[in-house]
Design a protein around this nucleic acid. Structure first.
Lengths: 346, 346
DNA sequence: GAATGAAATGATACCGGTAACAACTGGAGT
DNA sequence: ACTCCAGTTGTTACCGGTATCATTTCATTC
């Protein structure tokens, strides 16, 4: 007869419970729980005994049970418009580093630039009882807003500084950054500054950038020109087509500000193919300092955005709210600095 | 006196429980549970009444409780070497699309190319009782392997076809792909084919690619040459330095196969800067077909890998195992096809 | 009209932990 | 010797659902 003391079969896939550890260490489950989570509240002898057993039987605490019981979870939800975009990776890294250091886990999902998808994901995350949410988008459905409000979960918005924030914001101002770059171009003496961006439907970041561009034009006494502003799709191709179209429709153009790194690269390649000298024939400026822009020839003037810092600060603020209950942070807005990087393309 | 029937205060942040729905609909919680999860097992009248209440009070099922109680979770863990790498985004998208369609959630974490980090993350994920794991790396610590085995969670490895798989594998063969490209170059008539890759420590993908390169050389009667193979860091700079070093040390080189898209782009830019004609002075080939390689001039010959398909197939297999208990899939290996794309750079 | 059984619903225990409080211990203070 | 208190440990209820089995209802069959 086997000396099986266990009260439950050791079927594959079942892991030991806290009770198993407790039995084997001759203590109660509470003591095991304390030994693992508040070691100072347990005598050294017992703590060692418990930890030894934990190792022996390979006990893995069940986060689900612990979260449910303590009404406190250790996951944070992140919703991105698209995972397939290099500009988010820095932010994700900043977030993920800080979050993991505190023993939290990141759940990432993508909503494909669609507020309805976003709402669905927010619902799913709230169902998973995430203890915090990070949203890149700053435009949400009314239902999504209601659900978040109702849940009481702290939120950070990341992609822009919205007029009516949900809660906390960590971002730079798209408007100001675009204004800065346009001014920079104007100061360099360019007179016919074109502007290419992604479609601004459901995208206040795009709209704000356009606003900044327009304001700079006005302040420098430059005439806005329909033919010089263009909205387009994502992708290298889109950038290529944009520059081609603008040069054809408005040959007097002397600079193109692409509000997106991929567009700028696409535009540059197109210029190279067509033999248009950059910046002599047409100057190029970009938004967002990806590695590539520094390495192409000519290197491209752009705006360095604090992507990584956004992630870090976001995580810090969220964790302060979650762990320390730092209610004074509710609604706070962190407006981070950007920087115009002048390079060969202008 | 308020007509408060509820047995619990409605403090901020608390969401309604199933019991609240049940009370208000005049049924038991089991009936609510059925109305939501197995609608066919509930009469239409009751179902409608329950769903109405659910909407009214904005009830959100608690996934933690449900997972705990049913011993079945709806999250899948994904561990990537780095989020900051465009080659993963396609796979993530493929995964995420299929997984979300089944109501599952993806938890993503990055391990920074370090098996110990990976082990830590695997532990964390198992603690969250993920119902499946996706690992890009195919090299794991013995402890990590033991924990996974013990947990019984189905796993898919993604980055290579390892000699000793943990469980399921969905990938292409790095060895064969590198062999194919090297052969392609040899057939085009190149005689002094150099090879640049990332460091192969803790990276069997790198090692396998080198193997494939070597085998092709041998089969085409080309002499391997120490000066023609180089291992380096990640990044555009690394690619630039690699091509510079190789051309300096071995001027007779006539082709460079970069086992990584970023390296290839870096190398190309360096050639452009130095005025080395591609492919006349030196031909360039890459690994992995990112958008960029098609748009640079000259466009770069490369290998198209089924990144998106890997994600989809991975998700499908994992879900089959989880939902349908498809045990026949255990240990199965899906070897997907790659494709050599001949472009201007060779 | 009684037996039969499928459909609908409920009662209860339990998933694996933690909160809150109770109980026990032994040394310090007086 | 007695009180008191801090340090340990245990007991019990509960977190919010689901599995399981029991019960009720009602149409069908003979």
């Amino acid at each position: 007869m086997p000396k099986q003391t266990a009260s439950r079969k050791s079927r594959a896939g079942s892991s030991a419970r806290m009770r198993d550890v407790a039995n084997r260490a001759g203590v109660s489950t509470m003591t095991v729980s304390r030994a693992l989570n508040e070691p100072s509240k347990v005598s050294e002898a017992v703590r060692e005994r418990v930890l030894k057993v934990v190792k022996e039987i390979g006990y893995l605490p069940n986060h689900l049970a612990s979260s449910l019981s303590s009404n406190r979870s250790t996951t944070i939800g992140l919703i991105l418009p698209s995972i397939d975009n290099s500009i988010f990776t820095q932010t994700v890294k900043g977030l993920s580093d800080v979050i993991r250091q505190s023993g939290f886990q990141l759940m990432i999902a993508e909503c494909g630039y669609d507020p309805n998808e976003e709402e669905e994901l927010i619902t799913a995350f709230l169902g998973h009882r995430v203890s915090g949410l990070v949203l890149h988008s700053t435009e949400h459905t009314p239902q999504a807003i209601a659900k978040i409000r109702k849940s009481g979960v702290p939120v950070v918005e990341n992609g822009n500084i919205p007029a009516e924030p949900l809660d906390m914001v960590v971002s730079y101002s798209n408007r100001n950054a675009a204004y800065a770059m346009t001014s920079h171009l104007a100061r360099l003496g360019y007179k016919n500054i074109a502007y290419a961006s992604l479609y601004s439907v459901h995208n206040d970041r795009s709209r704000d950038r356009l606003d900044g561009y327009m304001q700079a034009l006005e302040e420098f006494g430059l005439e806005p020109d329909q033919r010089l502003t263009i909205e387009t799709n994502r992708g290298l191709n889109a950038g290529a087509e944009a520059v081609a179209r603008i040069v054809q429709n408005a040959p007097e153009v002397d600079a193109l500000f692409c509000a997106g790194d991929v567009l700028a690269v696409g535009a540059l390649f197109e210029c190279q193919k067509r033999g248009w000298a950059v910046p002599e024939r047409i100057a190029l400026a970009s938004f967002d300092d990806v590695d590539l822009l520094r390495h192409v020839s000519p290197s491209v003037t752009t705006i360095r955005l604090p992507r990584h810092e956004i992630g870090e600060r976001t995580a810090q603020m969220l964790l302060s709210r979650i762990i320390d209950g730092a209610e004074h942070l509710r609604g706070s807005i962190v407006d981070l600095k950007y920087e115009v990087i002048q390079r060969e393309s202008t």
